[in-house]
Write a protein that binds this DNA or RNA. Structure first.
Lengths: 139, 139
DNA sequence: CTAGGTGCAAAAGGTTTGCGGTTAA
DNA sequence: TTAACCGCAAACCTTTTGCACCTAG
């Protein structure tokens, strides 16, 4: 079970320093943590509404944005799809099944580093890496 | 210099088998091949217009779609940006400079395979891989 | 107390679609 | 000849923004 952000520890999460923890942001964060299935903003909105009737889609977008900016959550992009959100902060990629749309985390093998694999020009500073695969799950 | 698709060899390009080569598709393809700088659909549209006054944005989208479907071109996605298009069909990733927005190809080191790096579940079939990096160029 | 969030509705892009006329093969 | 494509404009969807009110710290 993940550590829920309570009123007593609103900004204690290592990634949430300096982020003002409002009810709506907490709700959005909790939605992402409780079903780690890479929902879109609209899906987060639907789930958040069941616990917090008045929340608006725009607010969900704003909350997701704030969480992403503070490094609490990652945004994932697949072709022709709206953004999805992932609370897994470890180094990993994503695989999407073409038929079902299901997204799964794909961990990096331990000790492996993507930059070992790539011929990057001298002196570039990499701040963000996104690895997305699409294909078919065996099932 | 790349091999221009002419009327004499409209579908000889290995990747373009079965693709009906209209004037507009050829123009769009030529735009991508002559400036390999990962333009967006709107940028392709602007460039295509200078050679083909009547072409419409919707047609550019349709042509890009057709070229992507036939594997002649790849679509690249960066956070918060509209799709960009890349005619480089070799295995490579993309790096975008945060300040200028410039996108460069990042080749894989030879002999390297991305799947060596990832803990993929048994039996998945990977059809497409996208690696996108963002950060700062040294300059 | 007040800087910063929220809700709402409207606007802003980017991309897709429907239809009547056109064209590659 | 004709299935497929193009041009246009309108529709569609996701995401952002402006403004008045509200609230966490």
């Amino acid at each position: 079970m993940y550590k829920k952000l309570t009123d007593q520890q609103p900004t204690n999460h290592p990634q949430l320093k300096g982020l003002r923890m409002t009810r709506q942001r907490r709700e959005v964060y909790d939605v992402l943590m409780s079903h780690r299935d890479h929902p879109t903003a609209s899906e987060v909105y639907e789930r958040a509404k069941s616990n917090m009737a008045g929340i608006s889609l725009a607010t969900v977008y704003n909350c997701l944005e704030a969480l992403v900016q503070h490094g609490a959550v990652r945004q994932v992009h697949f072709e022709r799809e709206s953004s999805r959100y992932c609370p897994n902060l470890t180094a990993h990629g994503h695989f999407q099944d073409e038929k079902s749309g299901t997204v799964i985390d794909v961990p990096l093998k331990k000790g492996a580093s993507l930059t070992d694999l790539l011929d990057l020009p001298e002196g570039v500073q990499v701040n963000n890496i996104e690895i997305t695969l699409t294909g078919k799950l065996s099932n």
